[in-house]
C-alpha cells in the first residue's frame, strides 16, 4: 500500500514523458494493441507522412516495445503491457475530467494512493442523489437493487441502521452469502445493535465472512451484488454523502470493481475474523 506520494516520486520521469508527449507514439501503440499491422495498415488510421510513421516505429523498436517480421509490426511483451497500462491511464484521465466534481468534493484522504488507477470504474455509472421532495430516494433504490442478490460483497464504512437492515433482509430472505470488509468501530456498533443475534447466527452458518481493520480507514461504501454495484463517498468534512453511483447489470468495469473489493480484503492491516 502506498501511503505517501514520496514513496513513488522519482528524480526523473523520462519514460512516461517520452511515450506520452507524442501523439503519434501513442496512436501507434494503440493501433498495434488492436492487431499486428503493416505500414499500409497503419496509414489507414493515421494520415501522416511515411517518414514520420517509420521514424516513430523505429523509436519504439529501439525501446523493444515493437518488433517487426516480414514488414509487419507487432508489440513485444513489454510493448503489449506498456500499451495496455498507458490506455488505462488515459481512460482514468478521461473519467477524472468527466467526474471532476466528484473527485474535488469528496474526501480520499484514507485511500491508498494507488487506488487512483481505479478511477475509470466510475464510467458507465449513474449518480443518484436524494432530492428535497424525495429524501429516501437513494436508500430506496439501494434496497431495490440488492433485493435479489445471492452474493454480496461490501466495504462498509458507516453503521446506518437503515442500510444495515436492508443487508440483513437480503441475507435472511435469499439465504445469501456476504463478504464484509469493515473497521473495528463499525463492527462494535453491529455487536451492540439489534441485528447482532442474527448476524452471529449467519456467520456461524457460513453465510457471512468478515474482515476487520483496527483503524477507521474506509472512505468508501462499496456494494457488489451478482448483478448490480454501488459506491458512495464521504465529503471533505468526513460526513457521509448519501449520493450513490449505481451500475446496471452489464458494464465494462465490473471485473475491476471486483478487484477493487479484493484489494480491500487483502490489505495487510485487515484481518479475517473467524
Amino acid at each position: 500500500m502506498v501511503r505517501n506520494i514520496n514513496e513513488i516520486t522519482l528524480d526523473y520521469y523520462d519514460e512516461v514523458r517520452y511515450l506520452l508527449s507524442s501523439e503519434l507514439r501513442l496512436k501507434i501503440l494503440r493501433l498495434l494493441l488492436e492487431s499486428d499491422m503493416t505500414l499500409d495498415d497503419i496509414k489507414k488510421y493515421i494520415s501522416k507522412q511515411d517518414t514520420n510513421i517509420l521514424r516513430t516505429l523505429k523509436e519504439l523498436q529501439d525501446l523493444n516495445l515493437v518488433e517487426t517480421r516480414d514488414k509487419t509490426y507487432m508489440l513485444t511483451s513489454t510493448g503489449y503491457l506498456a500499451s495496455r497500462n498507458i490506455m488505462n491511464v488515459l481512460d482514468n484521465w478521461r473519467i477524472v475530467t468527466k467526474y471532476y466534481r466528484c473527485f474535488n468534493y469528496h474526501s480520499f484522504k484514507k485511500f491508498p494512493i494507488e487506488y487512483a488507477r481505479y478511477a475509470f470504474v466510475l464510467d458507465e455509472s449513474e449518480r443518484i442523489t436524494a432530492t428535497e421532495e424525495d429524501y429516501d430516494k437513494t436508500r430506496r433504490l439501494y434496497r431495490e437493487k440488492i433485493k435479489d442478490a445471492t452474493n454480496l460483497k461490501i466495504v462498509l464504512p458507516i453503521y446506518s441502521k437503515q442500510y444495515f437492515s436492508y443487508i440483513m433482509e437480503v441475507l435472511k430472505n435469499n439465504d445469501a452469502k456476504l463478504q464484509l470488509v469493515t473497521s473495528r468501530n463499525i463492527y462494535d456498533a453491529i455487536k451492540n445493535s439489534t441485528f447482532w443475534d442474527d448476524f452471529k447466527e449467519l456467520k456461524k452458518k457460513g453465510n457471512i465472512r468478515l474482515w476487520v481493520s483496527e483503524k477507521d480507514i474506509h472512505e468508501i461504501y462499496l456494494t457488489l451484488t451478482d448483478t448490480y454495484s454501488a459506491i458512495s463517498f464521504f465529503y471533505q468534512d468526513e460526513t457521509f454523502d448519501d449520493a450513490t453511483f449505481f451500475w446496471e447489470k452489464e458494464f465494462k468495469a465490473k471485473t475491476m470493481l471486483e478487484h477493487l473489493f479484493q484489494t480491500y480484503k487483502h490489505r495487510k492491516s485487515i484481518k479475517e475474523i473467524i
Partner: peptide, 16 residues
C-alpha cells in the same frame, strides 16, 4: 482531480 491524474502518471512511470 489533478492529484489523481498526477498519481496515475507516477505509477505509470514505475510500471514502465
Amino acid at each position: 482531480q489533478a492529484a489523481i491524474k498526477l498519481v496515475n502518471l507516477l505509477l505509470l512511470e514505475h510500471n514502465l
